[in-house]
Amino acid sequence: MTLGYAQNGCINEPMIYICEMRSQNLIPYSFTMVSVFFNLVELSVIRHVKCIHAFVVRSCFDKNIFVTTALIDMYAKCGAIDTARKLFDMMNERPVTMWNAMIDAYGTHGHGKAAVELFNDATSGHQAK
């Protein structure tokens, strides 16, 4: 349902649906959380991103690599590069998609040197903390 809402441009419905799930003591899957992120990325509103981030932490999804990669991407698209990098640095496991999200964030916002340095770290074996 949440992905369907997100794919059809419904902005508020996915969050309402997740809140309804939580009120019934149902725990959303990481896929459910990531599907909500698509709406927020389209909006590029930092307060929405912070709100969903808090929800992610309260729901114990903050160490999920898929959810965190999506958070990194969301923060970056809203221009909060420092916050995106803090999330990136907090992760012990960093799949290629997470590296790509952070490198893209730097490149998109004109931080070419940081993007190249991070790319070099990724390709030289510094993938883990």
Rank of each mutant, 00 (worst) to 15 (best):
S124P: 00
N64Y: 02
K63D: 07
I72N: 13
D121V: 00
Y29G: 09
M33D: 05
N25R: 06
G112F: 02
V49G: 01
A115P: 08
I52P: 01
A76I: 10
N64S: 06
M98I: 10
N39L: 00
V49Q: 01
R22K: 08
V34P: 00
N64T: 08
F66K: 10
I81V: 15
R85G: 00
G112H: 03
S30F: 08
E20A: 03
F119C: 12
A105M: 08
I52W: 00
F61W: 07
G107W: 06
K63S: 10
C51G: 06
A105H: 14
P14G: 06
I103W: 13
L43P: 03
H48S: 07
G9D: 04
E13F: 00
K63F: 03
I18E: 10
C78G: 07
F38S: 14
F31E: 15
F61R: 05
E20R: 04
E20S: 04
A105R: 10
C51Y: 11
F88R: 14
I18K: 11
A101N: 00
I27H: 10
I103M: 13
D73I: 05
N92R: 09
M102Y: 07
R85D: 03
R85A: 03
Y29A: 12
I16Y: 02
S124L: 04
C60I: 04
S124R: 14
F31D: 15
G4K: 01
T69D: 02
V49M: 04
A84G: 01
V41A: 04
M90C: 08
S59W: 06
F38A: 11
P28F: 13
M1E: 05
V57T: 15
L43E: 08
E42I: 06
D82Q: 15
S35N: 09
F88W: 15
D121C: 14
V96Y: 04
V56T: 15
Q127A: 09
I65L: 12
A101R: 02
M91I: 10
L118T: 12
D104A: 14
D121W: 03
M21R: 12
I18C: 13
F55M: 10
T108D: 11
G4R: 06
F31T: 15
V57N: 12
T68S: 14
A70L: 04
I18F: 12
I65F: 13
S23C: 08
A122T: 12
M15N: 03
Y106I: 06
Q7Y: 04
T83Y: 07
A70K: 03
I65M: 11
A54M: 05
I103T: 12
Y5Q: 08
F37C: 05
D89C: 13
V45S: 11
G4N: 12
D62T: 10
A128R: 15
E13W: 00
I11L: 09
N92W: 08
P14R: 07
T83K: 09
F55S: 05
M102R: 09
R94I: 09
C60F: 07
T2D: 02
F37P: 02
H126V: 04
